[in-house]
Design a protein around this nucleic acid. Structure first.
Lengths: 225, 225
DNA sequence: TTTCAAATTGACCTTATAGTCATTCTGACA
DNA sequence: TGTCAGAATGACTATAAGGTCAATTTGAAA
């Protein structure tokens, strides 16, 4: 009887395995983004993915492990979405305003994504941390340039995060729509210390920047049902 | 054998009953205000109260029913704490700033109370609604007086709530202390549309108002361990 | 067509929590 | 001091969720 090539054999299942793993991740995204909070359980995820419960544990140690991976994906997507525009804007406050505008537009356009983001910010500290790191950089620059009225950069970061998270939560429940975005961005800038007129100007500039970098939205938001 | 007076008999246990009920409510407060989020379960509450599980169900239909009652108590306490100062301030934005200052000072002084408030705002929508009703009144007045840069009163309310909730959460984890309060109040006022200088003036005025109404703090915050 | 390592399955176990109820305890009154 | 309605108890059931594993299915290679 002919010998079986074990290494070859070991590679056979990889495609199938990868497909199942992706299905579980995708189902988890859908669960976390569901309109009424489906409690994110292993049973719910596996049922949504159409696989048996045991299969879950072949691919992830437990639910937190899956959440961590999902979080990394979200961070990568956010980064890919925001960095190009951020790199193109020199003034730190306008840069921050541009990123906030793009982010809020995406969230307004995709409530499911907004729900996912809102929950990720609460449940996945790493996602929040990664976003805040960039924000902290911008605000530290602003402080160095004498543009920041808030005493500590850390507090300024918290203020921006609070406003964006609130907006995200309002988008996710459709209590506001995209037309409120400039109002929110102006409020963020004013909170940072911009005089009202200056805040309005920067918000307009941020909107133009966001227009210029508006391509590829679907690549990010199209994934979630 | 002498007859027993049944109506009289029915009233016998009332004091005992009321004491047990109060103990359960108090234990629930402690659970919700615990440093690391003790999951609020019937078992946890009854154990903290030193009563058997069945006793809980003699006094409350279920956990949501207890939470609703706890929420009403919190609303009443907040109202008692904030209304006197609010009634004394004429300008709506300064009134709002005064209320925010008093609230944040209380929360800074009592982390357990801050934790309770932070969780109540998320878990007990009625508490949040009641507070927001007052806030909405102030901000509607401000809009009528042309003091509001935010387009909709509703959005303005959300912005203030977001900032106060973020602050509450930071107090509850001791990531900021009371010295940050003026910074936060100024940021709130600026977000509403006050020019930076005006925001600073109103914040100072609010601090003086808060000083004047600083009595009785212990009556509110002393309850929670 | 047969083989077999890997992938998958789902019944089963464990733990945590909600909620019930027959039984026991308590204490003011007769 | 004995009575007994009401208060309290805690063992009990039911359910939901995490996690395991012996048995079954899959599919490329032989």
């Amino acid at each position: 009887m002919a010998r079986v090539n074990l290494e070859r054999r070991a590679a056979i299942g990889e495609a199938k395995r990868a497909r199942t793993r992706a299905a579980i991740l995708e189902a988890a995204r859908a669960c976390y983004a569901a309109p009424e909070p489906v409690s994110a359980t292993v049973d719910a995820v596996t049922q949504a993915a159409g696989v048996a419960k045991g299969t879950f544990y072949l691919h992830f140690r437990d639910l937190p492990a899956l959440e961590a991976e999902l979080g990394e994906t979200l961070i990568a997507e956010l980064s890919e979405r925001l960095e190009p525009a951020r790199l193109a804007v020199v003034n730190p406050l306008t840069r921050m305003a541009t990123a906030v505008t793009i982010l809020l537009r995406d969230l307004a356009a995709a409530p499911a994504q907004a729900r996912l983001a809102a929950r990720a910010a609460v449940m996945l500290p790493d996602v929040a941390k990664a976003v805040q790191a960039r924000l902290r950089g911008d605000l530290a620059d602003a402080q160095a340039a004498g543009l920041l009225a808030v005493g500590s950069v850390d507090l300024a970061v918290r203020i921006v995060v609070a406003l964006v998270e609130q907006a995200s939560s309002l988008f996710s429940t459709s209590r506001i729509d995209a037309t409120a975005i400039p109002d929110i961005v102006r409020a963020v800038l004013r909170a940072m210390g911009c005089p009202p007129g200056d805040a309005a100007n920067r918000t307009n500039e941020a909107a133009l920047n966001a227009d210029a970098f508006a391509q590829r939205t679907s690549a990010v938001t199209g994934v979630v049902s």
